[in-house]
């Protein structure tokens, strides 16, 4: 990957809302060049989407509930963990799935409106899968930092003096 592509990706990774005009100015390139780079990167699927990090707790009365579930599974011959991972990640309740080293196999992040809703999904869908041997569920109590962004960080005052040599 070219240096200029990396620079562009780093910029929009931090702020997907940056307009093409501004990206062009920051990089010292033309708008056409930047648009074309973006199109290429989308086609190559280097850019998979443009999402927004939202603190739902600020908007909704009830906070969404997230659980991290450690799942032990039986791998299948020939396809290893991929097949069972797919069975799991197809569920819309599932927000992330990782294959892990260590005490369990899959780390599954599940989102729901309430703990009951998540409990129901785990007992009726996830644990009920033939290849799932066991699950251990951890509910998230508070998010401090997510995807490199510190939440509840209201302290963004400039602490510098206004004019200095």
């Amino acid at each position: 990957m070219k240096e200029i592509e990396v620079e562009l990706l780093k910029l929009i990774e931090k702020n997907a809302n940056l307009k093409v005009e501004k990206i062009a100015k920051l990089m010292g390139k033309s708008i056409d060049e930047v648009s074309e780079l973006l199109r290429d990167l989308e086609e190559k699927k280097a850019i998979l989407g443009y999402s927004t990090l939202i603190d739902w707790a600020k908007v909704l009365d009830t906070e969404e509930v997230t659980a991290m579930v450690d799942v032990k599974v039986t791998p299948a011959r020939g396809v290893g963990f991929d097949k069972v991972a797919e069975r799991i990640y197809r569920f819309p309740e599932v927000k992330a799935v990782y294959l892990m080293s260590g005490a369990y196999d899959l780390s599954v992040s599940v989102k729901g409106k309430t703990m009951t809703e998540i409990g129901k999904f785990i007992s009726e869908k996830l644990s009920a899968l033939d290849s799932v041997l066991s699950t251990t569920t951890h509910f998230v109590l508070k998010r401090y930092k997510h995807d490199g962004i510190i939440l509840h960080d209201d302290d963004d005052d400039d602490k510098r003096i206004v004019v200095s040599p």
Binding site: D158, R160, I161, V162, V163, S164
Partner: peptide
């Protein structure tokens, strides 16, 4: 600095 320090809502490019 004295002048700027008295004012509110200053965007400083003086730093």
């Amino acid at each position: 600095f004295d002048l700027a320090a008295q004012m509110d809502d200053v965007i400083s490019l003086g730093v």
